[in-house]
Design a protein around this nucleic acid. Structure first.
Lengths: 243, 243
DNA sequence: CGAGTTGTTGATAGTACTCAACTTGCGTGG
DNA sequence: CCACGCAAGTTGAGTACTATCAACAACTCG
């Protein structure tokens, strides 16, 4: 249960932060990086499968996920969080857990609000992240509402691949994905067994293979077909921050 | 197909706007209402079932909804929009249609961006709306992933009732809902027939009745039980704008 | 080498979909 | 004023997809 080979790196100075180009603070010019440090209230490391209690943070390394549970005890995964993502806890009864070992920068709510109140660009960067979250949730809603198991699995795998690729964490043919099949199932509203069967079909048909923490895209065209993939998500309507 | 009795009211002056307390511009002090008018580029009226082409607007009267369609031609409703809601079109391939006759204020993207860039409070108000959208989508994702037809229908009806109640458009025992059963079905990932059967069960068991555009909550406790209702949604973590 | 977690597979039961009528309500036009 | 035409709502029968239950295999960790 403990990290073995490569220990999870801890975030260092904001000025040299590797994930900042993808993160909330990407809009802060180099000259004002010092102001960011005053918003960061702590740096933290949490082990895989542990709950994260901090309510606002920027993920630096590793994956996390948000989830709720229905009264009858079943889990619904609401979103996966990748390095650079801003994560907010408890906007409802949802919890956030570490999927792998993770490290992140905890942000002080009040100071962040104050910063955003002073810097509209930052507030818009925040809004931009929310718009992306919303777009992703809408896609997933469409999956759960109107796609069968094969389509849902294909769609989620393509989504995760795309998000990783945008951060340089994937190449065209595949990417490392630290998920278990149970995570896929709980994100897609499927039973673990059925998610497994869908993955087996993808493998059998030479479409994609997801094994041992690695996704391989064998036939992207076929996979997009199965997923009902809708080209690339368009840029947000309002907030066009950063690159 | 044409409105009969009460014609849809058109938005008038921003200063006296009835929906502004619930809308994006609620944070603009009365003294600066004039600035809002410069963001409004048009006032429009669209008939029920017609598509809305404007990409950013504040709904003033009537209901609208956002939706996509899967490659095989089935519709997924992504969200319903009520008076006061800020609606953005085409952040992806989604479309927006009028559910009833609607009237709304079209906003000029560039001028709105400029306003938000000058007024962080407004940007945060925008973010606040996005956080609410996200919370709603998460709830609905949980519905589609982990609740059966009865639970989904109950949950959506409770959600809509709550949203209306917050705007003073509903009392404790019920509310007018201009939806067809097909809208419920397409929002919940159900077939029309199955949605119909779920409604029939709610009626038979004296839980709720949804007929002729009106929802009656007959046994709220039982309904919340069915829906796996999670008390009241907590306030957003970051943006605490307005009341 | 166990013990537990994760992944696989098969059989069976449910829930929800599809297809096909048929009913209601309502507006138009004869 | 009533017939027709449609949209929306119902109902029933049969089918398909997915969950559940139960083993069992493969792997990881200590």
């Amino acid at each position: 249960m403990v990290a073995k080979n490569s220990p999870t790196p801890l975030p260092g100075s904001c000025a040299a932060c590797a994930v900042r180009p993808f993160a909330l603070f990407r809009v802060v010019p180099q000259a004002r990086v010092g102001e960011i440090a005053r918003v960061r209230s702590a740096v933290r490391l949490v082990r895989a499968n542990e709950a994260i209690r901090d309510s606002v943070f920027t993920l630096y390394a590793g994956w996390a996920f948000s989830w709720t549970t229905t009264p009858d005890g079943r889990r619904q995964i609401l979103d996966f969080h990748l390095p650079g993502d801003l994560v907010e806890r408890s906007e409802d009864g949802a919890e956030v857990s570490a999927l792998t070992d993770v490290s992140f920068c905890v942000l002080a709510k009040d100071r962040l609000c104050e910063f955003m109140g002073r810097d509209p660009g930052l507030a818009l960067s925040y809004a931009d992240g929310l718009v992306r979250d919303r777009a992703r949730l809408r896609e997933r809603l469409t999956s759960l509402g109107r796609r069968d198991a094969l389509g849902r699995v294909s769609h989620l795998l393509l989504e995760l691949h795309g998000r990783l690729a945008r951060r340089g964490g994937a190449d065209r043919s595949g990417a490392p994905l630290p998920l278990k099949q149970a995570h896929l199932a709980d994100a897609l509203g499927l039973s673990v067994e059925h998610a497994n069967r869908a993955l087996a079909v993808l493998r059998r048909d030479g479409v994609a293979s997801f094994q041992k923490g690695r996704l391989d895209l064998l036939d992207r065209t076929a996979m997009e077909e199965l997923a009902g993939w809708s080209t690339a998500p368009a840029p947000p309507v309002l907030t066009r921050v950063g690159a």
